[in-house]
Design a protein around this nucleic acid. Structure first.
Lengths: 366, 366
DNA sequence: ATTGTTATTGCAAGCGGTTGCAATTCGGGT
DNA sequence: ACCCGAATTGCAACCGCTTGCAATAACAAT
């Protein structure tokens, strides 16, 4: 390989750039899908492909000048290492799978959006798996191994702990978002659902509500269980009676609507919904179906603080999940920066007061 | 490697299964992240890796019996070809990038959910790129080439046609969803925004509305432009006056809210919003801020038909986008089943009548 | 100048599949 | 039994990048 002049490393980026274009052209016409490879760059520069590789690997041993030259040439040529090929040798794809259920609930849409954004900032790309209703997380596992993802973030939906354990043992990371698993030692990031529910109870009680009801979400989610437990135990602590509770299969608007109707039979003056979407449904039912007023007849608190909770029509008091912080934790867990010691990250919540719990003596909301 | 007995290929699946487990075990303990490879299966069965590969490739030449044996063994062993490795030689990763803007608008959350689901059914996985507000599609391109995705579906957001062209020329597919680009020959799937807007006008006019206003969305989206054009041209056809128009930077709830207030100055008796989310914001403003009634004082029509449009409080008449059909088209384009002849797929829309446009003489909505 | 150290670089063997080509096997016809 | 073409299968060379190891270059010390 006598590869003429450029091995001398002339500083003239000019000439390099020119070659670049030329190469791209010839290559491009040969096979349209072909892009620049490390070898192309190596040949152009008169070095070995190893050096190209090392230039892009921060840990690798390579002289600063060489790295600089390569980086500049690559930039000029528009070369970027092929992640797919790289992941074959390194066994790390820099892609993480995000498994979500339905995005109907805006909270999860937000989660997905922020999570993928932050992951990208941390150098990961996200492979999206959205489960059809009733579809199991486990059903997606085969795909995950095919794509050898570095980590799996499971947002919502239940997962059989057995499988999850297998998976963690296989060296991949599994992170539960807004979910926990009782026994298993799977890292998770959640908010403090228990305390959140207590805050709701206290808020109701402080405002003179006496007949509190709870509209539960899906039975099989830890999130729901914790909120329910917080609600009930706080009532017990205060020696207050527990008006009623309704279970719901889907946590949807419609569920909230139905729950409100069902609970109405017990004449509650306050309802705590397992999440905001349900709360909105509940408010609809209370107003349109029962002809009652929120908050005068029935005060309402939700959970999540989705954007719609702030809309004037609903102006829903709710327990806010610290989404940004939670996402940040999740990303940390994925990139493993924080030690593995902290398996369960729990973020504090905050009650956001709006009109749906204005004290009875306050103004009326027409 | 004297790999004892099994080369004889006994039909007893029984024994194969047993070996399977054994193999997984030994392998697993050696390197936890290691999973079964084609060579493992090949060795166990006493065939070459080529055959394993061919068994999984429908086109390949392989005897039916052999394929059957391999498939069964693979199933028993839990082997699945590694897509990453495969894509290195085939240059087709079976992954498609979906680029979305914000998911705040539930319509796009729905699009994303369905699209990824259908793509998966068609054998693709989706790599998600969610753009931060103001971030350009082009900024994501480098990542796309790194992951050599088979196709890119751009949902929302504007894209510079130059880049898009480069990209298509490079052999990858680009598909615009709910967007078109004027000059370029980039395939797109949309609904008939133009006709949709006309339907809205007709609907208003039939119900005796005389002062129609339009609350536009983002200037730089084809979708918005088409809806606006349809609205204005239909009014012109009918010889009706055009009351007013408001532009909005983000298509958000807040934008709709503001637009309604701005338009109120022109005393419209009907407003067509560029999308549902804006329409909901508009209704809020009309009720809470202006103290007016929908539809008695001002009738409202939206566009998209998001789930919330059906909520009792809003009961929004809207132009429904045939989401399922659109997604199906997009998937077809990705998998290239349909010839490339049909570059622009346009789906018909449908007006869904709800309370927000009940004829003035009808009942009042309290 | 010579030798010892250390920092750089190149070589070559993978990573897990795919695929053109040659070798082998299998039927069938005569 | 023998030969021929078609159907199967194995071999080996990639795909684009990483990395252990050996070779070389660079530089300091004697």
């Amino acid at each position: 390989m006598h590869c003429d002049s450029n091995a001398s490393g002339v500083n003239a980026t000019e000439s390099v750039t020119y070659r670049a274009v030329e190469k791209v052209m010839t290559n491009g016409s040969k096979d349209p899908k072909q892009v620049l490879t490390a070898r192309d760059v190596a040949q152009l520069m008169g070095v070995s492909t190893s050096m190209i590789s090392r230039a892009f690997n921060p840990e690798a041993s390579i002289s600063p000048t060489m790295r600089k030259r390569i980086m500049e040439a690559s930039a000029a040529l528009g070369y970027r290492p092929n992640v797919i090929a790289r992941s074959l040798s390194t066994r790390s794809s820099k892609i993480v799978a995000i498994i979500v259920g339905t995005l109907e609930n805006p909270f999860y849409a937000q989660v997905l959006e922020k999570l993928s954004r932050e992951l990208q900032l941390a150098g990961y790309q996200s492979l999206l798996f959205s489960l059809a209703p009733g579809q199991d997380v486990d059903s997606q596992l085969p795909f995950l191994v095919q794509y050898n993802v570095d980590a799996v973030v499971i947002v919502s939906a239940s997962i059989s702990s057995g499988i999850a354990n297998d998976w963690t043992r296989s060296g991949r990371k599994v992170i539960l978002f807004n979910r926990t698993l009782p026994d298993a030692s799977i890292p998770s990031v959640c908010c403090d659902n228990f305390t959140g529910a207590k805050l709701a109870v206290d808020h109701f009680v402080e405002r003179g509500r006496r007949r509190l009801a709870f509209a539960a979400g899906r039975r099989d989610t830890s999130t729901n269980a914790e909120r329910e437990l917080g609600f009930i135990s706080r009532l017990a602590e205060l020696g207050k009676p527990f008006a009623a509770k309704a279970d719901n299969p889907h946590c949807s608007f419609q569920d909230g609507y139905n729950a409100a109707l069902k609970l109405a039979a017990h004449k509650p003056d306050a309802i705590f919904f397992a999440n905001d979407v349900m709360a909105l449904g509940g408010i609809e039912a209370i107003r349109k179906e029962l002809g009652l007023n929120v908050p005068d007849d029935i005060a309402v608190i939700g959970f999540d603080d989705i954007p719609m909770a702030a809309w004037p029509t609903y102006s829903l008091t709710t327990i806010r999940q610290p989404l940004d912080a939670m996402v940040e934790s999740a990303v940390d867990l994925v990139s493993d920066q924080s030690g593995v010691d902290e398996l369960r990250v729990v973020h504090p919540v905050q009650l956001v007061e709006r009109a749906s719990t204005k004290a009875t003596s306050d103004e009326k909301v027409p």
